[in-house]
Design a protein around this nucleic acid. Structure first.
Lengths: 223, 223
DNA sequence: GCGGCCTGCGTACGACGTACGCACCGTCTG
DNA sequence: CAGACGGTGCGTACGTCGTACGCAGGCCGC
């Protein structure tokens, strides 16, 4: 994160002297401020100027620590996910592991609804570590890596979809309107649907495992 | 642009002559132009000024037919969905009906990726007609209306999630980069996951149907 | 001291959504 | 035929946005 330790330290000293109580600008402070604003006022209210006033610094000072607003959005999204990382090692029971992953994501999105918007798939940026976690956790269900990948994507997609359905209302407006309607997915809906999907996975995995040859081999290997 | 009367007059003539067949500004034309731009250049490139130049009209003229940009985004999203409406009546087979709904949504989002962004849940704006369609189509699976609602939301959420996963890349950038990665949901993933979910629904519905009383009634009616 | 850094930030630019108000046109009324 | 009126087009202007650029001032090794 920091190229040099001592330089950062020097900056801290400088800050203490020059701007008295100000904690000094840093990437971490900027990201934290941005998250605070987005949480409190909605992502639409998150502007570079707003962040600058929050930290009472100049607007352009932010750009010394953040390439541009897009990078900042990526950073806060990643930070939101990092608040609730998938634990290592994953639970041995595949079902429990899927429930855990789903719940962690659910919590991230409930705590920071803007994460659904700032990144189209917050947890799965461009690296596959989360997917790998899920695929690994499914080892107890199936040995077919391709099937495990497909299942993982299904679970992940489902979770993301329900979360959108759940927090859709207050995404743009910063206000909180619980707004009960049959369209709004509840936590019960979330869990019921997840169990349904897991049931389907179990059934499907055992089915392909019980008769792997008939179709697959006769048709000349997997598609 | 034009400050004087005669110049305006000249323009009017020009309009009549040059644009002869043009039906003049209309809400439909504006919506269509907006969709064309969003399809071709991405939703980020969609501005009121851009639409105005597309229709070569003044920017503020648009506001005679559209309340504001938000309303326009809502309108194009609804228009995108209306291109592929759920057919009436729904297929008798509940499984086929779910597949159909899922496929129609998938096609909408593939054709117009921005629809995933312009409305957090494009098809389910604020009315329940699509939900009702799904619930009705599930009559063959379960008689429990609450369960049918829950299933509908699960299917809908899943579809939305996979679509995001599928088109996430070209959402913001207007460019098309197929970009194959294990994270990107394919059409095969989409269908496999859907079937898995449907399997789970079938199993779960038959399970609750076989022993409906024990819990529900003993606990004093539905929650 | 002095020339290179790194950091903070004031200014400025272009793009955005849109409030406001004027000019025009067709129609309706007297 | 005149004059009023509602609907439409749109030029101007304002406030906000992201951010390019460049300057000022403190630190470093020489």
């Amino acid at each position: 994160m920091y190229a040099s330790r001592w330089l950062d330290f020097a900056m801290a000293i400088d800050k203490q002297r020059g701007r008295a109580s100000s904690p000094g600008l840093s990437r971490g402070a900027i990201v934290a401020a941005a998250m605070r604003i987005a949480d409190a006022e909605g992502v639409a209210a998150l502007s570079m100027r707003r962040i600058a006033t929050e930290l009472d610094s100049g607007v352009m000072s932010l750009y010394r620590h953040v390439a541009n607003k897009d990078a900042l959005l990526t950073a806060i999204t990643r930070a939101a996910c990092d608040e609730r990382p998938y634990p290592e090692p994953a639970p041995a029971d595949w079902r429990e592991a899927m429930r855990l992953a789903a719940r962690l994501d659910w919590e991230v999105y409930c705590a920071h609804p803007w994460a659904l918007v700032t990144s189209s798939s917050a947890r799965h940026f461009s690296d596959t570590t989360c997917l790998d976690w899920m695929v690994g956790a499914l080892a107890g269900l199936t040995e077919d890596a391709e099937l495990a990948r497909s299942f993982s994507i299904a679970v992940w997609s489902y979770v993301q979809g329900v979360c959108i359905q759940h927090v859709a209302q207050q995404l743009l407006s910063g206000g909180d309107k619980p707004e009960q309607s049959p369209l709004r997915a509840t936590e019960e809906d979330f869990e019921a649907g997840l169990e349904t999907l897991l049931d389907g996975m179990e059934q499907r995995a055992s089915r392909t495992a019980s008769r792997p040859a008939p179709r697959t081999f006769a048709a000349g290997g997997r598609r």
